[in-house]
Design a protein around this nucleic acid. Structure first.
Lengths: 346, 346
DNA sequence: GTGAAAGCGCTAACAT
DNA sequence: ATGTTAGCGCTTTCAC
């Protein structure tokens, strides 16, 4: 033991076998429960492992089994609470399946997406979790070409050969509008960050559609869509100010995300507009911040943690199938979370 | 190529060598630039790699080199903005050094800390980044016993054999108090989450000390310290209410963290106390939320992203040294970020 | 129930 | 400048 300490080399399975006086393969069988080992032998091996502070080498195991217990997770920005909550769900579920998650934070940069996918593949990842719509379309091809099972979360699949988990975005918007309608609101505005991704596009479209269905007027000056990519909170505050500047003022506002709602909230409060008494406000996502701001935000919850978990569960199925799998798409129902940013129309 | 496609086996270096008509080791040399390769040979190899869509197998490389290009990062809760920003800095710097980061989110649970360290060691991690003060003290021993170079971030080292990066917490509190003092405030309260970790203890102590130094009165009823571990925002809001209930009211409040400040802000606003006109408020950390709430929060910035980067830089040094290293402790200066939650005493 | 032996894909001496 | 060779630590037949 002291000699083992001194030369500072990690004990290998061979060392354990020698110490226990058995064959290496027997130790392997014992560890992996891949054959029955006699009780006495078990004891000797257990003791040897303890004595030598042995620890299996996953790298060697992975090489031998031509796999990897590493699961790459692609997110555009881990500091965005939406993605950190998603990451938590993914990590949690992955862990239960024996996978460690490697974080690839691309910062919404195409070249990074490219590089990181390359790294993930080199790590011999048997599958990948993609938490947003990659900007680089060519990567879909690369994933297909390399036969890498993938699960898309919060992404509408580029074609029908992909598996994904998405919230029912249209339903979410309906929940928001109908809630405001039930509070007596008839003049409802919509503030949106740049709708360059399908979820955002669907929310916007559905907002317009449902307004018509409910017999409400659709005013162009109440549907404010930012063109420029910038910080979502800034977008919200800029759009909020713009809305206040219009001659007619709505009594309620729906936003494309909580961050936009928070920005708008700032704009309203700093202009002396009280929320909810002067203006009701609904967010989308239910990030943690939504319950932290004052007044706390009524919003449409996307169950991010669950979505992460479900995604991993699906991915595990895809990875275990030897045959080419049929893709699975899971649509998750959103949920209205009532807090303090809405009240009945006066 | 089509046969390669069909049997769906990844090309290995051997395949590339065969295709290019050279020895495997030459391909290895070419890839790792570990020997000069003739231009013509280079071309053949490059072409073979392209043709076969070859990609180095990091698992095999890691086994051979008895290392790992994986760097474990321990955080207690990735959804806490402090840690997600830190993680971003760590990931960013690690990437530049060729490391992928594996996220170990322990959820402040001792047994998970234990399990995850075990996993990290099995992955053959050559070093670890620890982003908070582990609850399980025995893990320090385990890290030492296994000779695993480690960098502690936002942690005061358990003894002088550890390397760490911490912000100067005392200086931070001084910055806050002196700023308020300069605005004319003399009645200053302090709200703290449970100070079970050194950074929190130091902030609390320094607050009391500096108040005395500045000749200000230290009132017990203005120094509110939560005992119970719960959500930081809840703590802030509960402490905020308690503060308002006391007969004497301060004109300014310093908090142990931004999350506590945000909770307090909620409590104040919902009690009709205006910030900053009735009460000035200073946070600690400068998490993104600080600039998102209304009014935006004046706070003491800990440069989390930088701290992550610096930590990795130090760790790389530790890992490259063959000799036992002398630990490096880096004290980072905090910074006062002026926003809207403070104003001059009336 | 246990052991011997053959590699997984790669790096790194060492030769040529 | 390139090739030969010997493992890295493990899993997995296949014997016995």
């Amino acid at each position: 033991m002291s000699s083992n300490d001194r030369n500072r080399t990690k004990a290998t399975m061979r060392d354990v076998a020698r110490e226990a006086g058995v064959a290496q393969s027997t130790v392997s069988h014992y560890i992996n429960k891949t054959a029955t080992v006699a009780p006495g032998t078990k004891g000797k091996i257990r003791e040897a492992i303890r004595k030598m502070d042995y620890r299996p080498n996953m790298v060697a195991r992975n090489l031998k089994t031509r796999g990897s217990n590493i699961l790459p997770l692609f997110v555009p920005d881990i500091t965005n609470p939406f993605y950190s909550e998603l990451a938590k769900g993914v990590a949690d579920a992955a862990r239960k399946e024996g996978f460690d998650i490697v974080l690839y934070d691309t910062g919404y940069q195409r070249n990074r997406e490219d590089d990181y996918l390359e790294l993930a593949l080199r790590q011999q990842a048997g599958g990948v979790v993609i938490g947003y719509n990659l900007l680089n379309d060519r990567l879909w091809e690369r994933l297909e070409k390399t036969h890498t099972p993938s699960i898309l979360i919060d992404v509408y699949p580029p074609n029908n050969s992909w598996s994904s988990v998405v919230v029912d975005n249209e339903e979410g918007i309906r929940l928001a509008v109908d809630y405001l309608y039930s509070l007596g609101h008839r003049d409802i505005a919509y503030l949106s960050e740049p709708p360059y991704l399908l979820p955002l596009i669907k929310r916007l479209r559905e907002f317009i559609r449902i307004l018509k269905v409910r017999g409400l007027e659709v005013r162009r000056e109440w549907i404010l869509v930012e063109k420029e990519q910038m910080n979502r909170v800034k977008i919200g505050s800029s759009l909020g100010k713009k809305l206040l500047a219009s001659p007619l003022r709505p009594t309620a506002v729906v936003t494309s995300s909580d961050l936009v709602a928070i920005g708008a909230l700032n704009a309203f409060l700093s202009s002396g507009i009280m929320v909810p008494s002067d203006l009701s406000l609904v967010g989308f996502d239910d990030i943690i911040l939504a319950s932290y701001v004052y007044p706390s935000l009524t919003t449409i919850r996307q169950p991010k943690f669950d979505m992460g978990q479900r995604g991993v569960k699906i991915l595990m199925k895809l990875m275990s199938q030897v045959e080419e799998h049929s893709p699975m798409v899971e649509i998750i129902p959103p949920q209205l979370i009532e807090r303090q940013s809405c009240c009945a129309r006066r």
